[in-house]
Design a protein around this nucleic acid. Structure first.
Lengths: 202, 202
DNA sequence: CTTGCAAGTGAGTGATTACTTACTTGCAAG
DNA sequence: CTTGCAAGTAAGTAATCACTCACTTGCAAG
């Protein structure tokens, strides 16, 4: 299963470290993962990691960058493929859920960073990610409003908050139950309920 | 500000440790809080803590027990004071939000425990708490259904999930922004949107 | 008074962790 | 070939943490 050809360029090792960290984060809290854990999972000595990242924080920063790129790309693709703003909301919702079903370490990692107290650069980065997410939601909600698809007078900030909350609720539920079984089906039901409160009456 | 009369019975110290731990958890991740931090916040030597709890895990377990008692009590009081099932949902929602506005350490603490991987007794305890919460939600939703107040065919599991998600979304938003300002106002807006998707049409 | 014990102190202790360093090894260009 | 350097190793190191232990102190009952 193992038997990597050893000796690999820094660029490849950096990517490998990011994916390994994320994979391990699916199982336990990201902050509890030691550099020894990562090295062991890569069949590498612990010291070797520091040839590719100066500190452990730099590794976590690279993980956030990876998540940001991947998630926003999926959201944009989902929106682009939709035929109406309300359809775009559904596509983005399910794309997000599918993303963390495919990478269960992602939400655990993000939550771990958010719990950090201070203004660490890492938390700042997560804050940026969420801000961009909200921008995209606001754009779709505005478009839906303009098309008369959602009730007039709807509070867009509340609609965005409930959208994110619905996803976070599903994530937390999977963390409590320890499994993602049935998650996608429930995601569809929850989104249906969400959009019911949003849509204009026929 | 300090100057406690030293020498206090174990029972009082246990309660003090729980509240101190919770107070410190408002600022940083609960798992990062050391026994030295707690002792210092209590004007006590670190070793003294272990006269009152055998391990740090026992302290955290006591915190969960405190949260469970307080939260469920508030939920039950909120429900009892409401005049209809839908009103009960609103009262429970706002009671929960008010609870963590009053004790910002609570959600941080719970999230921290949930992130733990294994079947630790602590995580099991949190799971129980959430199960009891869901029981109460299910009871109110059933009552609302029986009274014809919510749309026929509504998925109760999804409704409960979205209810919890709405709250968790507000919590996470406050963790991102680092403040609870405007939280209650937004809680009312979010609940309004939630209940709009739920209520039967006139 | 005294005396017994719960409560507190402060100096350990071993385990763990991120990071360093002195040294080795493979590989590709000259 | 050789030679220079990026990539890897293994054994540190200082810091931190939960927990222990030998000892002290205040307090309340007899």
């Amino acid at each position: 299963m193992t038997a990597k050809p050893s000796r690999q360029p820094t660029e490849d090792r950096q990517a490998e470290i990011v994916l390994t960290l994320l994979r391990l984060a699916a199982g336990r809290s990201a902050l509890d993962i030691t550099t020894s854990d990562i090295a062991q999972a890569m069949n590498l000595s612990q010291g070797a990691l520091f040839r590719h990242f100066p500190t452990k924080e730099a590794m976590r920063l690279a993980v956030v960058a990876w998540i940001e790129t991947e998630l926003l790309q999926r959201l944009d693709a989902a929106r682009a493929s939709a035929s109406s703003p309300v359809d775009a909301l559904r596509a983005m919702f399910l794309a997000h859920v599918d993303f963390f079903i495919a990478h269960p370490g992602v939400p655990r990692f993000i939550f771990g960073e958010l719990q950090q107290a201070d203004r660490t650069p890492l938390k700042e980065r997560v804050r940026e990610l969420m801000a961009r997410y909200r921008e995209r939601l606001a754009a779709v909600l505005d478009a839906a409003s303009a098309a008369g698809l959602i009730r007039p007078g709807t509070d867009h900030a509340a609609a965005a908050a409930l959208f994110l909350g619905a996803i976070q609720g599903l994530v937390i539920q999977s963390m409590v139950s320890g499994s993602v079984d049935g998650m996608r089906a429930q995601a569809e039901a929850v989104f249906g309920l969400y959009v019911q409160g949003l849509e204009a009456q026929p």
